[in-house]
Simulated assay, not measured.
Amino acid sequence: MTPLTAAESYLQDFHQRQVGVTSAAFAHLPAHSSTATWASSYAVLSDLVPVGNNPLTVLDLACGDGYLLGLLAARQQSQLQLLGIDMSGAELAAARAALPASVRLRQERAQALDLPSASVDYLVSHMALMLMDDIEQVVREMRRVLRPGGQFAAIVGRTFLLGEVNEVFMRVFKPIASTELPPLRFGDRRAGSEAGWRALLNAGFADVAFDDIDVPWSPTPGELWTALLDTYDIDRLDDDARQRLRGAFLEAAAPLQAGDGLIATGWGLRAVRARAA
């Protein structure tokens, strides 16, 4: 592979230490939009791939531990060809252990896919594209490997935490991050907005559409903090800064607890869909 950027090197190290962290966070939580409900945010993507006997090739870009590919493989559609690409060898090893041998897995960067042009019918990606460097090249590669009329669908971040706890967390996090968090840029800001995605997809895609996807969750403050430890910025803090953030956050979040001790929150996601023109 091409030498990794600083952000990619960190992400590779993180996923070497915490294999399967993304599916652990999202696979067990239902997701919903204003018009539909799914078993998880992964199911938002798997449900877009048709069930049937027609030959289809599906690429999961940044497939991680293969959870989305597993949902598709469980259908046992004889004409469904599944391919997963990720830059993390550790995540791919976990995927290989969990998936049927018929699922092809390759360690590559999204900016340089070793795939024939116009060879993919559906390209899906879960919680990864907003982290990628040189997103314009990623989009060019996505369009190159998709057949004309092929479908692209991704789940990306929309907001960090749902509800009032997001403001509370940011209020205690930002002062610590401003002095204690080493600078490191993840991805492209355009991948965080609908307008940005429209601009990125303008050249090679049509029928661009979006859905706000909420993944509600009601943890205790302690459970929420444990989940936050698996986020990149908190992982990058040193132990002292992380402990100061923990104390400040748990104190600030305590008034948000309901009578049962839980906090109403969750994750705010966005589904991006488009057709290869």
Rank of each mutant, 00 (worst) to 15 (best):
V103Y: 04
G52W: 03
C63M: 00
I263W: 01
A93I: 07
E223F: 09
D121T: 07
L123K: 01
V103I: 02
L162S: 02
R236K: 01
Q257T: 14
D13E: 14
A6R: 15
L72F: 06
V272G: 10
E223W: 07
H15I: 09
A206K: 15
A209Y: 05
A25G: 11
E251V: 10
F160M: 09
V49P: 00
R198I: 09
V103H: 03
L245M: 13
L269C: 02
E223G: 15
A191L: 01
R144F: 07
V120I: 06
P221F: 01
V139P: 09
D214H: 12
A93D: 12
Q257A: 04
A227N: 10
L59T: 02
P221D: 01
P216C: 06
S78M: 07
P3V: 05
Y42V: 00
D86T: 05
V44S: 00
L71V: 11
S33F: 06
L45S: 01
M127L: 13
T5C: 12
G266C: 06
L146M: 10
P219Q: 10
V21Y: 05
D47H: 00
Q18V: 11
T22V: 15
Q243H: 14
A6P: 14
T2N: 11
L269S: 11
R158S: 15
D207N: 15
R270I: 01
E8T: 12
R270E: 05
D233S: 13
